[in-house]
Nucleic acid binder design. Structure first.
Lengths: 346, 346
DNA sequence: ATGAAAGCGCTAACAG
DNA sequence: CTGTTAGCGCTTTCAT
């Protein structure tokens, strides 16, 4: 079983194993005709390098680890796809690594993971990427990593990163609602553990301020990135003496919960109340009406991060990259109902 | 860098490397006091076995591959969680392997994957698990695998499998609708590539037959497991001269599409039309009204399959296992509107 | 119950 | 440009 080995190929091609290794790894220093001969032998024997052997003998295993602790299935899948695309392209392997970002042993766990399989480096996604103390430890262990964070601009802190401007996108969504004529806009917050949640809240506040509107505590409901909190939060907003005419959910799942709350309360969206989300997850397209949201290409973001990591592993220079989620307007937002108070139905 | 090796531990404990290896792998043949000493040394040196070395030198790498080709994010995540739970528990690694189940080289691709990393065995999920020719080849390569299939009972074909009775669950959902009093029930089919789709259709037909109702072609709309096909399919049903009073979508995403179609047509669910899905994905809980569906614990199913595979790898006897998705009744289904034709709103 | 020697298949560090 | 010699860290023999 197993397939042909380096030595088999070497014998067949009449060269040394090392030469075959060189060809297999695309090193320049092989005479074209020798290379040709080796290539033929590889083909003939259907040779595939054994990744374990390569990893064991080399400095690292040409495999990166994708680390995440995120309850959002779409997000995870998108990230995996992005990482896989980059890994396939660069001939790296991928190991996925769900983890508990709140664990006190986070850094040690990741270190062990890296050592046990000679992982070449890590892509850290939110919220793991926000555990700064753990990151410092990781750096201390000399483990290469790249992190994806929520920030309005390049932190320039010599930890390579991809930064996503959640604040700006949240500002754009809020502005969209303001321009439609909404004066009272509710905000359903995401989990405190996520920096992105704070950034989005900031974008919301900035936009209100920019329009000279007051920031009201009762309009900013706390919660986590889950449907139920969206539902409950929206209910609380509807029950206000002066309910908002629009609600901005910190992500699409929260917004879906708000949408359900509206429908269960007999409110029609967007006629009685506008609702916007964030993320452009399938949720936002698969509801009725579909949700206005901010498109955040987690797949592309993670793919870039993965490429940066691989460059870093190869000691090539890497520059941080920024991403701006873009506003996607769909049916769930419209101008507020003109004069009269919202009418209740059913 | 790296951590302590077997030899380091051996030196520290004053035994041979092999003895440490025995302890690390939980072999019986070590005197308790020796084991104790070794364990202490392992602890002291914070030793972690190197998985690459173990995999290279052993017969296989104590790692299983989870193979899937499925567009459904929730499904994939649930499967990964199940596989991970089993792998963590059994001290196996996990490699995920998205693939194109229609590729003509499927078997060869998987074989290469297995050989390159000395993967111990594969868990094949639908629809990969339904490519019987590829499976035969895989078996020919002596690659251990377990498959998850949609079947009403144990196929007993000496390929170990977990079989999920989609037909029975679809029968239960249809019966639920019939018992509510629905006489015309639409069925939105899933992708032809998936055997489960045919099984669910069969369950639907069986139930109608059991109730002495005719099976009408115009009520069974073709499509794929995607939201848009659910939307379009439902629209077609609504446009029928005599539209159904209930719609059974082949999975939750399709049902969500049907729900959106109903809402966009001004039909109220469940008052004007009942809608049921299949899968119990978050979709079904996060819509309004939440969807009646069949709970299918992909995580548990895959966890079992993974355990079976590991048992098989260890040459332990394995028995096939069956799963029955269970009916979950939620707000999207209700008795049909009494006499009068459905009223259109807005 | 324990150990010694010989690899697993590859790459690193040197030669030539 | 190409080959040689050592390992990488573990598990397999097979002894003892």
């Amino acid at each position: 079983m197993g397939s042909a080995t380096l030595d088999d190929v070497a014998k067949q091609a009449g060269v040394s194993a090392k030469t075959v290794s060189r060809v297999a790894n695309g090193e320049r220093s092989v005479r074209p005709e020798t290379r040709e001969r080796v290539l033929r032998a590889i083909e003939a024997l259907d040779y595939r390098p054994n990744l374990l052997a390569r990893g064991l003998s080399g400095a690292h295993a040409y495999t990166i680890g994708l680390v995440f602790d995120n309850p959002n299935a779409y997000y995870i899948i998108a990230m995996q796809q992005g990482a896989l695309a980059a890994c396939d392209d660069m001939h790296f392997g991928l190991q996925i690594r769900p983890c508990d970002s709140t664990a006190s042993t986070l850094a040690e766990d990741l270190r062990d993971f890296v050592h046990r399989s000679r992982i070449s480096g890590l892509v850290l996604t939110t919220p793991v990427s926000e555990r700064t103390r753990a990151l410092r430890k990781l750096a201390g262990y000399h483990i290469p990593f790249v992190r994806i964070i929520s920030a309005a601009r390049d932190p320039r802190d010599d930890i390579p990163c991809v930064y996503v401007d959640d604040r700006d996108a949240a500002y754009a969504i809020t502005t969209h609602l303001l321009q439609l004529g909404h004066m009272r806009i509710g905000f359903l917050q995401g989990g405190k553990r996520h920096h992105a949640s704070a950034e989005r809240l900031k974008g919301y506040k900035d936009a209100l301020q920019h329009y000279g509107l007051p920031i009201r505590d009762e309009l900013m409901v706390e919660g986590d990135y889950v449907f139920d909190d969206g539902f409950r939060g929206a209910r609380r907003l509807f029950d206000l003496a002066e309910p908002p005419t629009a609600i901005f959910g910190c992500n699409d799942e929260i917004a879906a919960g708000a949408l359900a709350a509206a429908q269960s309360a007999g409110l029609s969206v967007p006629y009685d109340v506008s609702i916007a989300g964030f993320e452009d997850s399938p949720f936002s397209r698969h509801s009725w009406p579909p949700l206005t949201t901010a498109r955040q290409r987690a797949d592309i973001i993670v793919e870039r991060a993965t490429r940066m990591l691989i460059a870093r592993i190869r000691d090539e220079p890497v520059d941080n990259e920024g991403f701006n989620p873009e506003l996607v307007v769909r049916g769930s937002t419209a101008p507020p109902r003109p004069k009269s108070r919202q009418r209740k139905r059913r």
